[in-house]
Nucleic acid binder design. Structure first.
Lengths: 223, 223, 223, 223
DNA sequence: TATGAATGAGGCTTCATTCAT
DNA sequence: AATGAATGAAGCCTCATTCAT
């Protein structure tokens, strides 16, 4: 599972001659820097400084700054989606499955602020790099399929209302989970940090789960 | 020998000699540029190009790039909150008032993507400029007070459950309204643009209104 | 005619605030460097070193290295063609006029090796920058018109054969005058430098004049 | 553990293990690249890309870029002079021999633009590499000797004027033949391409042959 | 003999900012 | 109040070359 760095006779550069490790090292440093400062705010020199390689290697493996950013974005998506894939909902009843998925997403986003920031930055750039990446699109089909399955089972059992659009439901789950991390700085600055304490976040997650479940249920309160 | 500027009250530069107008001109150009490219991505030269003034004036009135950004951010908040202030909910029943507020917020954010992008950018910068701005914080108290009033009336009338936190409710409303605009590029790139057509947005807004109302109601379906 | 540099209170930078002088200064330094090392061999830093300005000014006035090269090429052509324009042949008989033009061209090229080198370099680059320059093409029409006039007069007087193509004649004159300078290094390295001493060059010029006159005369020796 | 190259007489790399072939391969690629972009404009990576070998081989066989260039220049001279050597003029009368030599040189240069460009480049570099090459100088003695022989025979027969300098004559022939190729880009850009069509070149060659013959003849038209 | 990985030095260019008028 | 000219610091990137195997 872990990359065998193999740095016997280590010293600073004992691990070289291992391209994958070098690329990984660069990618991690780049993600930190890009997440912290954005695409144009990021400094190649800062990235190098977080690295055990030289500046030249960035260009050797990633062409240029934009190329490095694009790969870092892909890596961020890959990492997060891989984490999500570990969640097994197949055994749970539809309602329990949905509840768990929402709670998990909320917590998972919270635990991966770097990913959230990369996505924020990509949105600032109008998703230009995302569109150009074949790698990423594939990763997101699974997310929707999981939801699709839950919805269909819930409808069949009559616990969910008919015609729930899995994409719209995913949107709803993402919106709150994402915003919770992305807008925390401004929200806290304006309205205080109570929502972002441990207790506040737990309460928020529970409220979010309840709200989304309710909106999926079979018999909504008549208007 | 000296250039005869001769712009007495007319010609291209007749509008100068009006400090407020010059500042306003700069601020608008700056907002466009910052919203489009972020803080470090924005170019002073581009801002000047969108302006009828010269580069020197930016430094004359706004100190430096950071200062200009801070003022542009304030202006963006001021403009949006002013728009919100026009909404009069005092006459409406609590439920109707809440429904209207949610729908309005959703549409208002949608109509002000530049504001959304400024806030995204500010979050990338950890709200450092927002924290420093006394101007902005004041603007947001009103927003919460409006919600506070609705909640208290709804509780008093028994249509809303007890103990609703206006800040948490504001968070919920903001999350979906904000995410709808901020993450549209990536979301559309990954899952298609159906949610972002006119029809899609209308349906989404209605769903959002319904969901939030439900979550505020007095008797949630027992778990 | 001369640029008023006006450097009272001179010191190193007393002449600044005079854009034309700055541009001229850069252009001269650039021509030297480009002529010496070619387009890619030239170093911006070397150009700056020959200058009384800073590196930044090159980009301020000439966009980039390629732009500077293009302007330097134009300037080289302009300077040489201006020198040629001073030659007045109107009063001379056709044969004398042609003889004088050939001798002048030969000597003029010899006196302007920097121009020759710029043209050599431009040919290495397939005249890409020349093609893109509207400035230069205009300069060369005069050269041909001068020849055109001599040919027509010579034909009318019966001293030149009919149907001489002024462009072909210009080609012939240019070929020897240009090659004499452009290929001097390799030719001298291979065959010795006798042709390039003062005496050698004088003899060469006379031979060239005689040859070209002969080829223009009315009655060539029958084959 | 060791990579099984197994290229016995076949496969992509079957031709390696043949040092001369490898060197030849590199030399051809290098000549193309140098001729196209000049010494500093040429890129080692581009040369490698045109090759079936690896970058390391260039340094192994040619020391460095400069060394490779020097060898490529030598190879270019060797190839062209070898082509010239095939021309047998011994059987022809002096005038016919000279006419044929001129025509041949004109066409030969035209057919070897890569050689012309190498010489242009070497002139830009003041023939520094040529001077250092013993190989090349030897190649050029034959060329002059051939002319020397023609001149002496012509003088003896009384068809050429006395005292023709074979080197000066070679210069004359080279000038037009070389310029015709070297300056084609700029000349065509400035004065149109008529001279460089098939028909134009044929006419030019004939005119050149006639002119040079005339200048060598015994009784020039009296001034 | 051969190769993919790695690199230091140096090149071109950009940017926010200030100066002289 | 306003401007065009000017700039230093720093950014991104390229290149010939060498190393480890």
């Amino acid at each position: 599972m872990t990359v065998a760095t193999d740095d016997r006779a280590s010293g600073k550069r004992g691990w070289t001659q291992n391209p994958e490790a070098v690329k990984q090292d660069i990618l991690e440093a780049a993600t930190e820097e890009f997440a912290a400062h954005g695409l144009s705010g990021a400094r190649i020199d800062n990235i190098v400084a977080r690295t055990r390689t030289s500046k030249r290697m960035i260009y050797y493996y990633f062409e240029d700054k934009q190329g490095l950013y694009a790969r870092a974005l892909e890596a961020a998506y890959a990492k997060v989606r891989t984490g999500e894939a570990a969640l097994d909902l197949g055994q749970l009843e539809p309602e329990a499955a949905l509840a768990r998925l929402v709670a998990f997403t909320f917590d998972h986003h919270r635990a991966n602020p770097e990913f959230i920031r990369m996505v924020m930055i990509e949105n600032i750039h109008n998703a230009e790099n995302l569109v150009a990446s074949d790698v990423i699109r594939g990763l997101n089909i699974a997310a929707i399929e999981k939801l699709h399955d839950i919805c269909r089972r819930g409808e069949a059992e009559g616990v969910f209302r008919d015609g729930i659009d899995p994409v719209a439901l995913h949107w709803q789950i993402s919106a709150v989970s994402f915003f919770n991390v992305s807008n925390r700085p401004t929200f806290a600055a304006l309205f205080g940090g109570d929502l972002f304490t441990e207790a506040g976040q737990d309460a928020l997650r529970d409220a979010v789960v309840r709200t989304i479940l309710q909106s999926a249920r079979a018999v909504p309160i008549p208007d």
